[in-house]
Amino acid sequence: MNTTGSTGLRPILERHESTLLANWITAQKAAPTYRPDLIKENELRDQCRDFLRALMQAVQSGSQNVDGSEWQPVRDLLASISRSRGKQGFSTTATATFIFSLKEPLFQLLQQEYANDPKVLAEQTWATSVLLDRLGLYVTEVYQQTRDSLIQRQQEEMLELSTPVVKLWEGVLALPLIGTLDSARSQTIMENLLQKIVESGSETAIIDITGVPTMDTLTAQHLLKTVAAARLMGADCIISGIRPQIAQTIVHLGVDLSGVTTKASMADAFILALKRTGFAITRPTAGR
């Protein structure tokens, strides 16, 4: 079966390359997943032609094992096509259709070729179908990997982006929180803040939650833990930027913030922090 599988495809690919290419592209353009806005016809044609050439070489090598080294060029080509489709915003179906739409034109040619030998035709159809299915699955897998790595990278970037600790004054740190606080993020935030407190020897840290859209008991607990840990190390935390709705939520939830200094705005918190460190801001001309 292995040998018949390859020998069956070989004459078709060799003799009918241009017909196959034309039919394949027609089939792809007819598919509902065709996106002329995302990929140009020239590009598609190039990809198809390259793929058919690589396929021909792989079939000529006689190996039917898609995972073997003879199929490496085909796999590389498919991987690069799949990756670029993933980045261009094609759906999984659209990406897999690239391979699966080859079936129809290929089967038509097989039918013409082996019209007078139904047994060989059936065998060839089966072998080709299996081959294309495997390649299609490979495309889907690469596509999935591309999307996964994209999501993971974005998550990591968001995590880094969202936890800057800034120094406002000698001995005063500020941590503007933006976005929802989940466990992983608040852990990173807590570690970052405590590390910065040690490094800079700051005695006051202002945690600004203006950018936190919602507050639930879990978020409040994370905040309180951070404040408690900072206190254990000898630093005081001020929570600022509590919006009216959040203040209402906190009270309704029964969260006890009595042990923590809270201020409505970052400016108020900063003034308090300065006062604690023994500084005061005055306007040079005023007050005389």
């Binding site: 570690e191 405590l194 040690v198 833990k225 408690a228 840990a229 900072a230 254990l232 190390m233 000898g234």
Partner: peptide, 15 residues
């Protein structure tokens, strides 16, 4: 007065 607690120790105690 307890001084110089490491961040990791502080987190552990709070947890």
């Amino acid at each position: 007065v307890v001084v110089g607690m490491q961040p990791a120790v502080a987190i552990t105690l709070v947890e």
